[in-house]
């Protein structure tokens, strides 16, 4: 589904991603872990097409297409979804209105008619139930005055609404209490299927107990320095990142 080859990217002339290689297949879930500032969100932003990042080398092939040539909205319309680490507030725009606009933009792109109101409201209700979001929330302005946990849950609600092919969850677990974490993870698990894939960025093994990954990658200083199965996450939980950093340093200096 997605192939990242030797991806290097700068922000303000500072190299943040220093050669990322990653293969993402349909039906699989990938965890990306790594210390603060290692470039996890940067990777997510580059994939989603955020402005301000300069890709200096490498390529990203998504469904046979050069992803980096597409506008952010076209990437979204082609099924890439980013659940933001810090979701922004949109004053004056209700979640319902926002989702209606989003769904219809995507449908328009795919040559479909706008969704009729009855179908839309049914979808809204179903997906709200999936992540146990009070439908009253959908009348509120997007993220305005939401608690940290509510914002994260709203991201997963939107994910459920749009049913993307490739979902990138950037620290969706941070800010969620234990119960909410289970609910959100449950929701994600229900959405997993053979034809979609998830990249889950997290600092905590805890989330991976619920959303069990097929692969775990450790990002450090802009590179994937370790890859393994779900046990790698357990190891990190126990020993932290120092050993990874050490090994990396050795690798660089040797």
């Amino acid at each position: 589904m997605l192939t990242i080859k030797n991806l290097k990217a700068n922000i303000e002339n500072k190299e943040i991603l220093k050669g990322i290689n990653l293969q993402v297949n349909a039906g699989e879930t990938y965890a990306i872990m790594g210390p603060n500032g290692s470039g996890k969100s940067t990777l997510a932003s580059v994939l989603a097409g955020k402005e301000g990042y300069e890709v200096t080398s490498g390529e990203v092939i998504y469904e046979g297409e050069n992803l980096l040539d597409l506008s952010p909205e076209d990437r979204a319309r082609k099924g890439i979804f980013l659940a933001f680490q810090y979701p922004v507030e949109i004053p004056g725009v209700s979640i319902t209105n926002f989702m209606k606009t989003s769904i219809n933009e995507i449908r328009k792109y795919n040559g479909q008619e706008p969704m009729n109101a009855v179908d839309f409201l049914k979808l809204l209700k179903d997906k709200a139930a999936l992540v146990e979001l009070d439908t009253k929330m959908t009348k509120r302005f997007v993220n305005v005055g939401f608690s940290g946990g509510e914002k994260k849950r709203n991201e997963i609600f939107q994910l459920a609404m749009l049913d993307p092919k490739l979902s990138i969850l950037d620290e969706t677990d941070s800010g969620l209490d234990i119960d909410a974490l289970k609910i959100v993870a449950d929701g994600v698990n229900k959405l997993r299927n053979k034809s979609n894939a998830f990249i889950v960025i997290t600092h905590y093994q805890r989330l991976l107990n619920y959303i069990v990954p097929d692969f775990v990658h450790v990002l450090h200083d802009g590179k994937i320095v370790r890859s393994g199965g779900k046990d790698l996450a357990l190891h990190l939980e126990e020993y932290g990142y120092d050993w990874v950093k050490e090994e990396n340093k050795k690798a660089v200096t040797s």
């Binding site: 989603a48 097409g49 955020k50 402005e51 506008s71 952010p72 909205e73 979204a76 319309r77 979804f81 980013l82 933001f84 979701p87 922004v88 507030e89 949109i90 004053p91 004056g92 725009v93 209700s94 209105n97 926002f98 606009t101 989003s102 933009e105 995507i106 792109y109 302005f141 939107q158 749009l162």
Partner: peptide, 30 residues
């Protein structure tokens, strides 16, 4: 309030292009 680039990117990421995003926000506001 300010329509920041972050808000526009958030909208883009949901498939909504910039002009429609601005219209959406401004009309919500007004």
């Amino acid at each position: 309030s300010k329509i920041k680039d972050e808000i526009l990117f958030y909208c883009n990421q949901r498939g909504i292009p910039e002009e429609d995003a601005v219209a959406l926000i401004v009309n919500g506001y007004a």
